[in-house]
Structures are given as C-alpha cells and as structure tokens.
Design a protein around this nucleic acid. Structure first.
Length: 259
DNA sequence: ATGTCGAATAGGATTCGA
C-alpha cells in the first residue's frame, strides 16, 4: 500500500500537476492538505474518473484536507476531537481496506506564526489534542498512520538554515517538544526510520529563490503506530515535484507499507 | 529586507495567510 501526503496549496491551482502526478505515480492513497476549497467546490469527479474514492473536509478559502483512495474506505471521520468550537478543517480519518486494514489520518497542523500570540497558542492547543488522539490510536494496537503537514521542523538538521528559523513557530522549542511528546508515546517517524542524513526537505518557500538555493525545511511527516511500523517497506520524499511548472511549495512524502 | 503564490472580494488592486 503506497500512501503519499501532499500539501497542494490550493486544489484549483494544482489540478494539472495533481492529476499528472496521480497518473504517473499512482498512489493507493493520497492525503491532501490545504485544498483551500469547500466540500461542494472540490472537483471530485476528476479524481473519481481516475478511479479514486474522494473524501473531503474543506472550508472556504483556507486549510482543508482530503483523502483520495483507490482502495475502499470505511469509517470516515472529520475534524480533530477535543474542541467542538474549532471551525478550522485540518483533520480527516478513514480506514483503508488493503490486504491489511490501515487507519489513516490526514492532518494540516496550524502554522502558529506569529509567535508568541493567539495563533501560536492555537497551534500548541491543537498539538495537545493531537496527542490525545494519538494515544487512542496506539491503544487500538492496529496499523495506523498520521501523515500530513505538521508545520514542525523537528531538529536543526531538518533545515538548510536552522538559525533563520530559531524564533519561528515551526522551530520554537515548545513546538519541537510537543512534536517529540507525540513521537515518544511510541510512534515511528517513517522518514527518519530510513534516512539519518541531513539535507532532506519537503518545503521550499516561493520567496527569495528558496528552491534554487535549496533553502528548504522538512515539515511534512508520516508517523506510524508500532503495528504500522512493522509493515514499513520504505519512505521517501519526492523532491522533483518542486521543480515542475506551477508547483506547490511542498512536495509529496511517501510510505510503502506491506498492507 | 524577503525577491512569491493562492484565494476572496470586488469588479483589478488589495488583503490575508502562509
């Protein structure tokens, strides 16, 4: 089962790249973030015609997550539990029925800038709720994946210029600690289970020629429960996507599971 | 320093979010 997480930065602006990518790479499951569309504005027929089931959790203008799957989906839920007043569409879950059933969570974690401030408070509160959901997934003792744009640079080696991010919400110690707290519950960070080296990024800003200078950061992550980690065949970042015409500022991160 | 992009509003330049 090949699963890719991809922050597409707007479905309308990315239709061409996204459909080409699905044709070429044929993920079984694509977890999309920042669809920037409401559910009824999402061009689901385009993907259904390509053989994908489509589940969205959108909102107007900003945020929004979706699951595209060639495999059957069961028990789809929308929204991260823990705050009924949270209007932001950042979380969607489904069980993917492969040769093994895999619970898949697609997430778009709040950016949190400027920090300190209310947006940073929201980020940290959201990460507390993430930790609660993560505990429940572990308790089920089943293969589960939490993948998406975490908006966290886990360590200095995950940024080309770590000092430039020192006071940014993506790298502040409280952000890193909250990310580590989730990992330390017992999750495996798939990319780091396969690759130790620095210099691997999943995001390059549109500004200041960041891509041409390889001034990137690694903020898109795939976390696996122990039962999912046992199925891990490989994890890689598809950096070539950033060099295409009309790219997103993020690229896909893949896991291949024996499921 | 951002050197940018996407969406909404409004009816083409501006604002917000990233």
């Amino acid at each position: 089962m090949k699963i890719a997480t991809f922050n597409i930065n707007g479905i309308k602006a990315r239709i061409e790249q996204l459909t080409g990518w699905l044709q070429d790479q044929s993920p079984d499951v694509a977890l999309l973030q920042e669809i920037k569309s409401q559910d009824d504005g999402f061009p689901r027929e385009i993907f259904e015609d390509m053989g994908y089931r489509v589940e969205t959790h959108g909102q107007k203008s900003f945020n929004g997550v979706a699951i595209l799957s060639k495999l059957p989906l069961e028990d789809v839920t929308r929204g991260l539990p823990g705050d009924d007043g949270d209007e932001q569409a950042r979380w969607i879950e489904a069980t993917v029925m492969g040769s093994r059933a895999v619970r898949v969570c697609g997430l778009y974690l709040p950016n949190g800038n400027p920090a300190p401030g209310p947006k940073y408070d929201y980020k940290l509160a959201w990460m507390d709720r993430l930790q609660t959901r993560a505990r429940a997934l572990l308790k089920a003792e089943e293969p589960a994946v939490m993948a998406g744009d975490y908006n966290v640079i886990p360590q200095d080696e995950d940024a080309a210029r770590p000092d430039a991010w020192r006071t940014d919400a993506l790298a502040l110690p409280d952000s890193r600690a909250a990310f580590r707290r989730v990992l330390n519950l017992g999750f495996t960070e798939a990319f780091r289970a396969r690759t130790r080296a620095p210099g691997h990024y999943s995001f390059w800003d549109y500004q200041a020629g960041a891509w041409n200078r390889n001034d990137g950061i690694r903020i898109d992550h795939v976390l696996l429960t122990p039962q999912a980690a046992d199925l891990l065949r490989d994890c890689w970042i598809e950096r070539e996507m950033r060099g295409q015409d009309k790219p997103s500022d993020h690229v896909p991160v893949w896991v291949d599971l024996d499921a």
